[in-house]
Measured scan of single mutants.
Amino acid sequence: EPELVFKVRVRTKDGRELEIEVSAEDLEKLLEALPDIEEVEIEEVEP
């Protein structure tokens, strides 16, 4: 069974934007590691 992958769009407080694809596990780590995120948009990517 393929692992869930999420497309994550992040905007930081200083206005930088970042778009990455991460696994569910990595997404959890990412959110814990970035306390200064202003906006996060997450969508599931079809395998």
Rank of each mutant, 00 (worst) to 15 (best):
V5Q: 11
A33T: 10
V8S: 00
A33F: 10
L31P: 00
K7A: 03
V10E: 00
R11H: 04
D36Y: 07
P35Q: 14
P47A: 09
E46L: 14
G15A: 01
D14W: 03
I20F: 15
K13G: 04
K13P: 04
E38L: 13
V5M: 11
V22E: 00
D26I: 05
R9I: 09
L27N: 00
L31S: 01
E44R: 13
E44W: 11
L30H: 02
L31A: 02
L18P: 00
R9C: 09
E3C: 14
S23E: 02
E19Q: 09
V8G: 01
L4W: 09
A33M: 14
L30Q: 01
I37N: 05
D36I: 03
K13F: 02
E39T: 13
R16L: 09
A24D: 02
L27W: 05
E32S: 11
P47G: 09
E38W: 14
E38N: 06
F6A: 07
E38C: 10
T12W: 14
E43F: 14
I20V: 07
E39C: 13
T12P: 00
G15T: 01
L18I: 11
V45N: 05
P47W: 04
V40A: 04
K7T: 03
E39R: 11
L31K: 03
V22P: 00
K29G: 06
V8H: 00
E44D: 07
P47D: 08
L34N: 07
A33K: 06
G15S: 01
L4Q: 07
D26E: 11
L27F: 05
L4R: 12
L27Y: 04
L31H: 02
I42T: 03
G15Q: 02
T12E: 01
V8E: 04
L34T: 05
K29M: 08
D36H: 06
V22T: 04
D14R: 02
L4E: 04
E43M: 15
D26P: 00
L30E: 01
I20A: 03
E21R: 12
P2W: 08
E28T: 09
A24F: 11
E17R: 11
L30R: 01
I20D: 00
L34K: 02
E46Q: 12
G15K: 02
V5W: 07
K7W: 01
E43A: 10
E41D: 08
V22S: 02
P2Y: 09
G15F: 01
K13H: 05
K29W: 09
K13Y: 01
D14Y: 03
I42E: 02
E19S: 09
E19P: 00
I37T: 05
D26K: 07
V5C: 14
V22G: 04
V40K: 02
E25I: 12
E1N: 14
L30Y: 08
D14C: 05
L18R: 04
P2D: 06
